[in-house]
């Protein structure tokens, strides 16, 4: 017994070191699994609060750019509205039938208070949280494309798994041919992501637009992501397709959060098919 105590005493710093390293390693492993919500994240009262303060100063310097983005989006929406009004003018009828009406997606706005894009695994912190109706696995988009998927929420803040993360797999398709693929990131350039698993019979050309596919229950179908920059076709399949994002991931401020109101229904149905 005394020997054991002596040994522990002799190696106490080494033991402490090993215990701390194991603790850190457990946190790392837990962090790498997608389905587990993380303990160490920036969506808590203290870190979120500090980022919020720092961002309110930083935001001031981006007012011009934000205004630009807003007016661009405004112009696009006005164009859409104009087209709608035109079609109504031709047909000129009114349908009042609330049972026919249904809303599938619900949008709400939030602000990015911390954005990373240079690391291998990037996360974004938002200034809204569970109090504002946010839950994990909601999509985050802005006027130019998709940003990521919400991973952790606290009362007032949320962290987003950015598309610039090795754990991010988002279902996308070619705009003109409905061939599906998966959007991933190789960690090299934050303006360029990759699409994998595009079937070989798909015809891909440089300059083709990539949009979100309808397969995931998170994003609405058809949100524009980027254009094909270049690709490599070898051994009868697409090895790699590089996508130039519409979004400049280094300069994003205001975002919208997409909530799929039919998600439970869709997921339950899909589960029941799998279980049979």
């Amino acid at each position: 017994m005394r020997r054991i105590i002596y040994l522990i005493k002799k190696f106490r710093y080494f033991l402490l070191f090993i215990i701390l390293e194991i603790l850190a390693f457990i946190i790392i492993i837990q962090d790498h699994s997608y389905h587990q919500s993380k303990f160490v994240n920036s969506a808590n009262f203290f870190t979120g609060g500090l980022y919020n303060k720092a961002n309110s100063i930083n935001e001031f310097f981006h007012l011009r750019k934000d205004n630009q983005l807003l007016s661009e989006e405004n112009a696009r929406l006005k164009n859409l509205l104009e087209k709608r009004e035109n079609t109504y003018a031709i047909d000129s009828f009114t349908v009042i039938d609330t049972s026919q009406y249904f809303q599938k997606y619900d949008y709400s706005v939030a602000k990015i208070i911390n954005n990373n894009y240079t690391k291998r695994n990037n996360f974004i912190t938002l200034n809204k949280g569970a109090k504002h109706g946010l839950t994990p696995d909601l999509g985050v988009v802005n006027s130019k494309g998709i940003i990521g998927v919400i991973k952790n929420v606290s009362a007032n803040y949320a962290t987003v798994l950015s598309i610039l993360n090795s754990n991010s797999n988002i279902n996308v398709r070619l705009k003109n041919s409905n061939h599906f693929g998966t959007l991933v990131w190789d960690g090299k350039d934050y303006n360029i992501t990759q699409v994998i698993d595009i079937p070989r019979q798909a015809v891909v050309k440089a300059g083709d637009t990539i949009v979100t596919g309808g397969k995931s229950a998170i994003f609405p179908e058809g949100i524009e992501v980027g254009v094909v920059k270049d690709f490599k076709y070898a051994q009868n399949k697409y090895q790699i397709i590089n996508i130039l994002l519409f979004n400049d991931m280094s300069a994003i401020g205001e975002v919208q959060i997409v909530k799929n109101l039919h998600k439970d229904e869709q997921v339950t149905l899909e589960q029941s098919v799998v279980n049979e």
Binding site: L16, A24, S42, N116, K119, N121
Partner: peptide
């Protein structure tokens, strides 16, 4: 050295909280 080890770990984990990097910084600085 115990104080150095514990405080370094705490600094590392604080950095991890802010930068969403799991326990990477804590591991390295310890």
């Amino acid at each position: 050295r115990s104080l150095l080890l514990i405080l370094s770990f705490l600094l590392g984990i604080s950095i991890d909280f802010f930068s969403d990097s799991g326990g990477i910084n804590a591991f390295a600085i310890t």
